[in-house]
Amino acid sequence: MTDEPFDDVYDDKFDLDDQVEIDGIDPADSRVLDEMVEGIDEEDVDVEGLIEAGVGYVSINRYEQAVEAFERAVKFEPENAEAWVNKGFAHAEMDEYDRAIGAYDEALRVEDEEFDVEALVNKAYAEYESHRGNPLETVERALEKDERSSEAWYNRAVFLNERGSHEDALRCIDNALSLGQRGPRALHEKARALEELGRYDEAEEIRETAREAEEEEIMSEAREGLEGEDSLSL
């Protein structure tokens, strides 16, 4: 089993920046969720606001509070697939894979096409990490719904490499890369397939490209950090 093969995919699960205050609400404030529902008629509860607060908690790694926010969202709007998917993600970040899978199943029950693929891809990841279900079958269901999902092709490549189907894994990872899959880990997964197929020179070239990508990521993060310091000093 590879070392955390999914990190590059799921790090980008939420589109977050360093600013976690949402519409004047700071999710770091422990009173936020209570203030959003107390004394308010059920039909007037801002479910989208609860989801945004949950995303804010995820951005500062407060996953228990994130789960609470998403739980409140689905309590008031049980057919909200976005809240269920996000709830599953927060559970997975705490290694609560059974609960994550349950949340993804709820999202799939809703049958919201906008979130079906995301739910299936994330469910496959949770199944893989928890050794439950059939992650390969789950990710293939995602590809049936959207054959242009780079995350699904990447995950399928990982699962196939694990099973020793390296030719098929190589084809899948090439599909993922051509569809815009980001991150050096995708390149490392391709190198892994090439090495298993005895194509060592090609594998080393890909590894070198992956190392360069990792260095660029480090430099980019450093630049962003410096820019952040500059903006705070103004």
Rank of each mutant, 00 (worst) to 15 (best):
D95W: 08
G133Y: 00
A126L: 02
G102N: 14
L136E: 12
K75G: 00
E93G: 01
D98V: 12
Y125I: 11
M94A: 02
R72G: 02
V85E: 09
A92P: 00
E93T: 01
R109I: 04
K75P: 01
R109Q: 14
E114V: 07
R99F: 14
P78M: 06
W84M: 09
Y97S: 03
A81N: 08
S130F: 08
E93Q: 12
D95P: 11
L136D: 04
V74H: 06
D116E: 15
Y104F: 06
E79M: 02
Y125G: 00
E79T: 10
I101Y: 05
A81Q: 03
A124I: 03
K123N: 02
G133I: 08
D116N: 13
Y128L: 05
A81V: 05
E96C: 05
A107E: 10
A83N: 01
D95I: 00
N80L: 04
G102T: 14
K87G: 08
L108Q: 09
E82Q: 13
E96T: 01
D105T: 11
F70R: 06
L136P: 00
K75F: 13
L120M: 04
D112A: 10
V74C: 08
V67M: 04
L136C: 00
E129G: 01
K75N: 12
A126E: 07
G102R: 15
Y128K: 03
D116H: 07
E77I: 01
R99D: 15
N86L: 08
A83C: 10
R99E: 15
E129S: 06
V117S: 12
V121R: 07
E71A: 10
E111Y: 11
W84Q: 11
E111T: 06
N122Q: 14
A107R: 01
E71L: 06
E127W: 05
I101G: 01
A107Q: 04
A90I: 13
R109D: 13
E93R: 13
V85D: 11
I101M: 11
P78G: 05
R99K: 11
W84T: 08
A124H: 09
F70D: 09
Y97R: 03
A90P: 12
N122A: 09
S130M: 08
S130H: 15
V121G: 00
A69E: 14
E113L: 04
A90V: 11
D116Y: 01
Y97L: 07
E96F: 03
Y97E: 08
A90L: 04
M94S: 07
G88R: 10
H91E: 10
V121I: 13
D98M: 08
E106L: 01
V74N: 03
F76W: 15
D95Y: 14
V85T: 15
A66V: 14
V121M: 00
K123S: 10
P78A: 06
E127F: 00
D105I: 12
E68V: 03
Y104E: 05
E106K: 11
K123H: 03
D112Q: 13
N80G: 08
E129Y: 07
A83K: 03
E114Y: 04
V74Q: 07
E127C: 02
N80C: 10
V117Q: 15
E127L: 07
R72D: 10
A100I: 14
H91C: 04
G88M: 13
E82L: 11
V67T: 12
H131K: 12
M94Y: 02
E71D: 08
N122H: 14
I101D: 09
N134G: 07
R132A: 14
E113G: 01
R109A: 08
F115S: 00
R72T: 05
H131W: 13
A119H: 09
A81G: 07
L136M: 06
